[in-house]
Design a protein around this nucleic acid. Structure first.
Length: 232
DNA sequence: AAGTATAACAACCGCCCCTAT
DNA sequence: TATAGGGGCGGTTGTTATACT
């Protein structure tokens, strides 16, 4: 049996106060990230280490963008979701200043509905069969504010990590024949050419410039599809 | 103006993976 | 090789804000 990450009796839960935020910021600025389990005590916080990590990653990090998502960010999320499924950390890694939690929330509250309105199943990015095309608003893209183009129709597979979303699939299928694409889809020019971020930097340099992005790059490199390339 | 429904955001929980021993 | 622990991720829940009746 794994022991809990912290003694819950002695930890605060719920919203963070300004004082707690400041303590965490001060500590990390002084000592850097890491050692989340021991950080709370060292920083004088009555919080679980995981809670500290989440607070820092999602809200206190200095390089966070916050604010509304731009249209191109929306499009990118949709495209990446079609490609990667619910791998929010990987998706967020392609959106500078955005966090996985933010992307996940935005998907669930905005984009999922948006796709449904367009007659697209947000789970597999296929055009909904029981929704006649004529009834799919913006199916032609004429009035959509977004240049949404979702031609990715990976096979219907359920996966543990990505729910009923398709697994990462072969890049060949992105540009090549996709037998499952329903006829009559909107102009589905989904450019999913992905390349690993430039590795001209050494690993150390890379992490110094953007530790989060490089972490994601590592994750992507280790993704199950050997043909998956990430675009910059 | 009050009550209710819905949306959006923040945070927690539990599981999994990786690494050190 | 097996195992324990730390860290990370995705799913889910809770809370607050806003819209609607």
């Amino acid at each position: 049996m794994r022991k809990p990450c912290c003694d819950k009796r002695d930890t605060n839960k719920g919203a963070w106060s300004k004082q707690e935020d400041q303590k965490l910021i001060d500590y990390i600025q002084k000592h850097g990230e890491g050692s989340w389990r021991t950080l709370p005590q060292a920083a004088g916080l009555l919080r679980c280490g995981k809670s500290c990590r989440l607070r820092w990653i999602n809200y206190l990090r200095p390089d966070l963008k916050r604010g509304n998502f731009a249209e191109d960010e929306e499009d990118l999320i949709i495209k990446l979701h079609a490609l990667l499924g619910n791998r929010w950390s990987l998706i967020a890694g392609r959106l500078p200043g955005r966090t996985d939690n933010e992307v996940k929330n935005y998907w669930n509250s905005h984009l999922r509905r948006k796709l449904q309105k367009m007659g697209i199943d947000p789970n597999n990015h296929r055009l909904n069969q029981n929704l006649p095309r004529s009834q799919t608003p913006d199916a032609s893209g004429s009035t959509s504010s977004s240049s949404l183009k979702t031609n990715v129709t990976p096979a219907d597979k359920s996966s543990k990590s990505a729910g009923d979303h398709p697994e990462v699939f072969d890049a060949e299928n992105v540009s090549g024949d996709i037998p499952d694409i329903p006829r009559g889809l909107p102009d589905l020019n989904l450019d999913l050419t992905i390349s690993v971020p430039s590795s001209s930097l050494t690993k150390v340099e890379e992490e110094e410039q953007n530790p989060y992005a490089s972490k994601v790059a590592r994750d992507v490199r280790s993704a199950e599809s050997p043909t998956l390339l990430l675009f910059a």
